[in-house]
C-alpha cells in the first residue's frame, strides 16, 4: 500500500478506536442512569430515588392481581424472581397486561413501601409464534409436569 494511504488508514482507525473508548467510558460513567426501570431487588435495597417519580419493572406474579369490583383500581405484585414489589394503580391497563407478563409501572413509593403507579406499560418479549404453537408448548409443559408428579 502507498505510504500516504497507509498513514491515512492508520489515522482513520485511530479515530474510530479513540471515539469508541471515549463514548465507552461515558456510557460506563452514566451506568445505571441509562436503565429505563428499576428492578424490585433495587427497590428493596433502597437504591431508588425517594420522593421522586421512577419506574419499576418486573413480571406480574401469578394470582396476585386483585381488581376492585367498584372502580378501576387494581393491586398486583411484580417480581424479578428474587424480590417483589406491590403496586397499586387506578386506571386503564394495557391490553397485554396479564399474570406472568412483563410490565413497567411509573410512580412513587409511599411510606409503607407500596408503589403507587400513575401509569402502567406492558413489556412484551421477543417471541413471536402462532397461537397453536403456544398451545402445543403449554400442553407439552403440562404433560411434563404431570409425569414429574407421578
Amino acid at each position: 500500500m502507498h505510504p500516504v494511504r497507509k498513514r491515512r488508514l492508520i489515522l482513520v482507525s485511530l479515530l474510530i478506536v479513540g471515539v469508541s473508548i471515549a463514548v465507552g467510558l461515558m456510557l460506563m460513567a452514566l451506568g445505571e442512569n441509562l436503565n429505563v426501570f428499576y428492578t424490585p431487588t433495587q427497590v428493596h435495597a433502597g437504591e431508588v430515588p425517594s420522593g421522586h417519580t421512577f419506574r419499576v419493572g418486573g413480571i406480574v406474579e401469578e394470582g396476585s392481581v386483585v381488581h376492585d369490583p367498584d372502580s378501576l383500581a387494581v393491586t398486583f405484585i411484580v417480581t424479578d424472581t428474587a424480590n417483589t414489589t406491590t403496586i397499586k394503580y387506578d386506571g386503564i391497563l394495557p391490553d397485554l397486561f396479564r399474570e406472568g407478563q412483563g410490565i413497567l409501572a411509573e410512580g412513587k413509593l409511599d411510606e409503607n413501601g407500596i408503589f403507587i403507579a400513575t401509569r402502567v406499560l406492558a413489556k412484551h418479549d421477543e417471541k413471536y409464534m402462532p397461537p397453536e404453537v403456544d398451545d402445543a408448548l403449554k400442553a407439552a409443559q403440562d404433560i411434563g409436569a404431570y409425569k414429574r408428579n407421578q
Binding site: L34, V36, P94, D95, L96, V120, L121, A122, K123, H124
Partner: peptide
C-alpha cells in the same frame, strides 16, 4: 401505543 400503552418512552 396498542402494545406497550405509550407512543414513546426515553429508553436506550
Amino acid at each position: 401505543k396498542p402494545m406497550w400503552g405509550t407512543y414513546w418512552i426515553w429508553d436506550a
